[in-house]
Write a protein that binds this DNA or RNA. Structure first.
Lengths: 190, 190
DNA sequence: AGCCTCGATGACAGCAACTGACATCAATGA
DNA sequence: TCATTGATGTCAGTTGCTGTCATCGAGGCT
């Protein structure tokens, strides 16, 4: 075997989620996470920029998948329909990860600092979607607004998907949320 | 005169914005802010929960005004129209504060930690609007989605309002953004 | 006047997040 | 064989933030 136990990054992420779940985010020190992964505090910060980031390793993957789906939507699809393709891709990504997502979301919801980090990840997703829409010829401010609307749908759909009693597929919930948005915005305004 | 120079809170906020603008957020220590306000570091933390919060003292006022306008919209107004009333109230609040808003926004945009804090303030605004809409009889997920859409409009409108060359009124920009959202969401989806 | 309570601030010690600098040493490959 | 590389360890230092106790003028009560 090599000089070090493999996958230090993964071990840190696993240890962090476990400890944050058990005793809470604030009550967990980085040194403890590192020790549980058989590493030192300094090494933790070589793998993750800060104590929060360790919970958001997958957000880049989500963004890439979402954006690629938007970019790959039929050329004649309306902007919001292209975003809907991204929502479908996201739903597929999360298939079979519901228990993990629930545990992780419980940790995040319990701490405002973690919620902040999640929000900036979603803002980054929104920016990337908007840029992709502009690449499809959508002009501002329509691109940004469509992207923001799409992320709002994702947020609402995701929230429902991780809700305790929920059993429906994420794709169904995303479609429901998207339809609800269309209805809400279309409702008899002057 | 009193035992202490008045308005410690305001002096801290003023000193913080000035220092963050001059030398950057990260390069400014809380002790320096406090010193410029004629106070100690410990007193800073008695007025503001952390180093970021000092830039967001006004967000509660915005939220209250926005929410009150939504609650006070005509009983028969559609949810999105009620939110539009909130946007108008927000626009009024910012009248004559453009230079301040520009300076503050430049500071925030330059640091990810400050952006995070701004995002959670907007998320709080969205939650409050959604709750108000539910109070008007709007059901979920329409309430949350309408609120998120409204905040998206606010974000886009505000961004444009603080843009360097922009001279139009915030109310005009908010209306434009709202119309763009309606158009984008209504666009020929199946 | 004399006294008391209150509240904003100061002083100080301490923890933990994060960073920079340098050392270590198995694996790798020329 | 040996120099290089790269992930990790070690250690010292800064700073955000907190708990605790002291200070002392203002304002009320007698």
């Amino acid at each position: 075997m090599g000089r070090w136990v493999p996958d230090a990054r993964g071990r840190l992420a696993k240890a962090a989620l476990a400890l944050y779940s058990e005793r809470g985010y604030e009550q967990t020190t980085v040194a403890e996470i590192a020790a549980h992964a058989g590493l030192t505090e300094r090494t933790f910060f070589r793998h993750y920029a800060d104590k929060r980031e360790v919970l958001f390793a997958g957000s880049q993957e989500l963004q890439t998948l979402f954006v690629d789906a938007v970019a790959g939507a039929p050329r004649d699809a309306a902007p919001l329909e292209a975003v809907a393709a991204g929502l479908d891709a996201a739903a597929e990504l999360f298939t079979d990860r519901r228990p993990f997502a629930r545990q992780r979301q419980a940790v995040i919801a319990a701490n405002a600092n973690l919620v902040e980090r999640e929000l900036i990840k979603l803002a980054s997703l929104s920016s990337a979607i908007a840029a992709t829409l502009r690449g499809r010829g959508v002009t501002e401010p329509a691109a940004s607004l469509t992207a923001e609307a799409g992320v709002a749908v994702f947020k609402v759909g995701f929230e429902r998907w991780v809700a305790p009693a929920e059993t429906r597929d994420m794709a169904d919930l995303m479609h429901e949320a998207l339809d609800a948005l269309k209805a809400a915005v279309a409702a008899r305004g002057q």
